[in-house]
Nucleic acid binder design. Structure first.
Length: 275
DNA sequence: CCCCAGGAGACTC
DNA sequence: GAGTCTCATGGG
């Protein structure tokens, strides 16, 4: 699929792409895209942006987005050909069914820091509360941003965050996760943006050294923050899917180098297409 | 009252 | 290395 770009002032039109924004924003990978009528309002890269599905593609609107085309092509992962994954799922009926239902999903290339913080919050939590806690964090420590009457807040950098004790984070109501966050916020000189130098095993090992990051969260961070497509996070939903449709002794490595993307199809199908 | 949520850490054996 | 227990918080 050869995506074509057209720009207008404060707008990019992505034509001829298979990406479906509904499925992409609703598969649990991101927490700051919210539906409002027939469009999605998101906060990405300290900017309020609006995405809208159109025939054969989607549009993106926001202050000066037309000056950052490469950033947005990368963010929405528009250069990767998702249809090549069909060959990896074809022999697994439930995976194939999930692929057909969710093949408009793209793995967003999100900011590693934002992903690390967000998925520490996600542990043993539900998506609604995760979004609420992240929003409170942004309101307190992020910069106020506006676009066309919409007011929101950027995701705070580590230096924006001034919390010095767990009491300072009590307003989040994040439960026992507050002490993991505090420890992370206090470690100001850890450069997560350099973690791309690690191979998959090394990256996983480094992430697991951080308190609050276990195997599942580490795999989410690798997949969503570092584009490691083979990372396969196993949460309660996926464990149920594996047990029901693949058998208990199934090894996800059988799914190949794009196992993580397939995992998103499975998660999306389990959450959005079952009772 | 119970159970659950995109689990992890500490502890036991 | 594999099983348990506990850890806040809020919704159903």
């Amino acid at each position: 699929m050869r995506t074509t770009i057209e720009t207008k002032k404060d707008q990019i039109i992505f034509n001829n792409t298979d990406m479906i924004i509904d499925d992409t924003f609703n598969c649990g990978q991101c927490f700051r895209w919210n539906k409002s009528e027939d469009e999605y309002v998101g906060v990405v890269n300290s900017k309020i942006v609006i995405a809208k599905q159109i025939e054969n593609g989607f549009t993106l609107e926001g202050d000066h987005v037309d000056n950052d085309i490469d950033f947005w092509i990368n963010y929405f992962d528009l250069k990767f050909n998702y249809s090549i994954i069909e060959k990896d799922v074809i022999k697994y009926p439930y995976a194939y069914e999930s692929y057909i239902k969710g093949k408009g999903i793209h793995i967003l290339k999100q900011d590693p820091w934002e992903v690390i913080v967000s998925f520490i919050i996600s542990a043993n939590n539900n998506i609604g509360r995760i979004k609420g806690i992240i929003e409170k964090l942004c309101e307190r420590y992020g910069k106020e941003i506006r676009y066309k009457g919409i007011t929101s807040h950027s995701f705070p950098s580590v230096n924006d965050i001034t919390a010095a004790s767990v009491e300072d984070l009590q307003f989040l109501h994040s439960g026992y996760r507050d002490k993991y966050l505090l420890r992370l916020f206090n470690n100001k000189d850890m450069d997560f943006y350099s973690f791309n130098k690690y191979n998959d095993d090394e990256l996983c090992k480094e992430l697991l050294k951080i308190k609050g990051i276990g195997p599942k969260v580490a795999n989410c961070i690798m997949l969503f923050g570092f584009s490691r497509y083979s990372s396969f996070p196993k949460d309660v939903w996926i464990k149920r899917v594996i047990q029901e449709h693949f058998g208990n002794d199934f090894d996800e490595r059988e799914l190949g180098q794009y196992a993580g993307i397939i995992q998103q199809y499975l998660f999306h199908n389990a959450r959005n297409h079952s009772k």
